[in-house]
Write a protein that binds this DNA or RNA. Structure first.
Lengths: 196, 196
DNA sequence: ATTCCATGTGTACGCTCGTACACATGGGGT
DNA sequence: ACCCCATGTGTACGAGCGTACACATGGAAT
């Protein structure tokens, strides 16, 4: 296992190169050759470590999935029981979408690729489950699932339509999903007034 | 303009063929040649009517977008003021996802392609706006936007993870988003109990 | 010391692709 | 009647692709 005679980090460097290529040119621009060029390794090396592109995509998606999870964990929105969860999640989404837009687009493109590539589905499903599990520290399981779905949908609309992210709108929508569950109420039922 | 000497429906037939190809093999399998073969027209004809693949995608997405809209309209969920909107929407999603799964996957794949193809973004944005506008007949604008996002996220998770669609869960989540707004309350706050 | 094989490297084949281009044809404006 | 050009058709070219394969190399097992 420890035997990597010449280039111990070769495999990892290929994955990193694939992520850079996909972030720059999209999944459409990802091929054994482009990755090999980006990683500065010969073509045969990429085909040796990842016989098929799907294998490489799975490895890249697994690695990219950690991006949002890290932002979520670092935010402390889940660990502080007294805080407003909806506001915390809305802020996390803003950080993620605003901080590294190309990276966010890449993560989402890899995630969405599961629609047509069955090999990626288990990885995508695992990401959704793990995110829901993190949220389950603050709310019940059904609410957690719904929150993941809503966050997915909000991100989707921002990234797809190219529109700006509206944190206050996100907070309001997330708050409604949390509101009826056993999670903390924001304490002001009038916040979601129909007027506006 | 009315001048279509030999094959008046040529352009439309190419769009239809593109949709069939994309539904069968995915966007990755869509090319001028595959579309030409499916439509039974020579290669040059597809390049003549759609100089670039993006043009063809835009035309296909515009046409595919009508799929969900039709299901939504036919359901009557929006036109009957006295009914439970959340339940109606949940049922519509079930019909759409269960009725023509390949068609639904195609619609979503085209929709999601807007992430990397700016040419598709206006079309994707228009779909979201129009859907929200339809919902605005029953709820306020903010709620309508949130409902679209949540429906997007729910469909996404079903299609991406390959899991089954849970209509009762969808009804509950949609109901919470509507609940705080001017829409009808379901009247049973205990429905979202953490137990199940 | 010798052997073995996981790993690394270079090259070639056949395929599909987008694009370009030359030519055919016939309806519509003149 | 005539010509024009939008439309239709066939073919070719160069590029990039996945894949396969033959060969190089040097730790590790013996």
């Amino acid at each position: 296992m420890t035997a990597r005679r010449h280039d111990p980090g070769r495999r990892q460097r290929i994955i990193d190169a694939a992520i850079r290529v996909a972030a720059r040119d999209g999944l459409a621009g990802l091929s054994h050759r482009t990755v090999a060029a980006e990683a500065d390794v010969p073509l045969g090396s990429t085909t040796y470590h990842f016989a098929t592109l799907d294998e490489l995509l799975v490895a890249a998606l697994c690695q990219a999935n950690e991006g949002f999870a890290r932002v979520l964990d670092d935010s402390g929105a889940l660990t502080a029981p007294g805080t407003d969860l909806a506001a915390g999640l809305a802020r996390v989404l803003g950080q993620w979408l605003g901080g590294d837009r190309p990276g966010a687009e890449l993560e989402y493109e890899l995630y969405l690729a599961a629609l047509r590539r069955p090999a990626l589905r288990p990885v995508a499903a695992r990401w959704a489950e793990e995110t829901a599990a993190r949220l389950a520290a603050r709310v019940d399981a059904v609410t957690a699932r719904a929150l993941v779905a809503l966050m997915d949908g909000i991100c989707l609309q921002v990234l797809l339509t190219g529109g700006a992210y509206d944190e206050e709108y996100a907070r309001e929508a997330l708050g409604r999903v949390i509101g009826h569950g056993p999670g903390r109420r924001t304490g002001d039922p009038g916040a979601g007034a129909p007027g506006t």
